[in-house]
């Protein structure tokens, strides 16, 4: 790069290009490229052992990449790890808590670790505990918390210092259904505040409603545009259920609409919600007894499964 060449303005909170990292002979991450935008929730999806956690550790400034470029909030974790760590809130997949400290003490301590004055850290900790519904545990030692409660404390811990970027490694693990819904809403709120969120999870149906973008990872590589196209395609798939399956299929065939057969109906491709409304009106108008009509399940899950099939 010459000095004259103008650097592109950095708009993304996280920009990683061609990142690789090996542990001994094991190539944990081979070639990861991803962008996480401010104000958006990005999912990091992939099977166990595909390098999600390793990639997150590199983004969090804890692990040095062997190759590739990373910029987090404009800083390079390789040379300015402290700046990266200050900008990032990291919720690890391993649940560790100081079991003799109370929840509030934990959050205050972590806040102070980011050089926030004690009183301010304490106030922030209290409001976060309220947010994750742990206020009744504020003065109780963390060892009494259940797994899901520890998970929520861990989320609060990642937010104490108002990070610009949030890395959530399997945040829904061990959460009960209600907490999952709350987590989803909370993550959306966090993104709405202008923060960038990168979240990894296996619970794909969960992510579907939470994320704006998705990055698929397999065997240490991010799948990039192919996977994005697959997600986009999956998002267009609608499933139609009819009391009279033959009538439905006849109507579609007559109108030469391409479809796949599905149990109790058919799968069709519809570009957006407006078109979906028109399609439904047309089917009903044609006398097809439609009793259910909607998106064909989780787009992420479909993509994930398709990706998994490719691997086999």
């Amino acid at each position: 790069m010459t000095i004259l060449e103008e650097a592109p303005p950095i708009t993304a909170a996280i920009q990683a290009t061609g990142v690789a990292r090996a542990f001994g002979s094991v190539q944990a991450v081979q070639d990861a490229t991803l962008t996480v935008e401010r104000g958006k929730v990005t999912a990091l999806i992939g099977p166990n052992g595909c390098g999600k956690t390793t990639l997150m550790l590199m983004l969090a400034g804890l692990l040095r990449p062997d190759a590739g470029e990373i910029r987090v909030a404009g800083a390079d974790p390789r040379t300015d790890s402290a700046a990266v760590r200050a900008a990032i809130g990291w919720m690890p997949d391993q649940l560790g808590s100081w079991d003799n400290l109370s929840c509030l003490q934990t959050l205050t301590l972590v806040g102070q670790s980011y050089r926030i004055p004690a009183a301010q850290a304490r106030a922030k900790g209290l409001s976060l505990l309220r947010k994750v519904h742990l206020e009744e545990f504020a003065d109780r030692p963390t060892r009494v918390l259940s797994r899901g409660q520890k998970q929520r404390l861990s989320l609060a811990r990642a937010l104490v210092h108002d990070p610009a970027v949030l890395l959530l490694d399997e945040p829904a693990n061990g959460l009960d259904p209600r907490s999952r819904v709350e987590l989803r809403q909370y993550v959306r709120e966090i993104a709405a505040e202008g923060r960038a969120v990168l979240v990894s999870s296996h619970v794909l149906a969960e992510l579907d409603e939470m994320v704006d973008d998705a990055v698929f990872m397999s065997k240490g590589r991010t799948l990039g545009d192919d996977a994005a196209r697959m997600v986009a395609h999956a998002r267009t798939r609608y499933r139609v259920w009819s009391l009279d399956v033959d009538a439905l299929r006849r109507a579609l065939t007559d109108a030469s609409v391409p479809f796949e057969e599905a149990e109790g109906g058919a799968m069709v491709s519809i570009a957006d919600e407006a078109h979906a409304q028109q399609a439904l009106a047309w089917l009903v108008g044609a006398g097809v007894p439609v009793h259910r009509f909607g998106p064909a399940g989780s787009a992420l899950e479909q993509t994930y499964m398709a990706m998994e099939e490719d691997r086999r």
Partner: peptide, 17 residues
């Protein structure tokens, strides 16, 4: 011991040196 408990990394991730 802290690594095993998962309590070292959260400290390392802060701006503590």
């Amino acid at each position: 011991g802290d690594v095993k408990e998962g309590t070292l990394a959260p400290l390392q991730a802060t701006t503590l040196s």
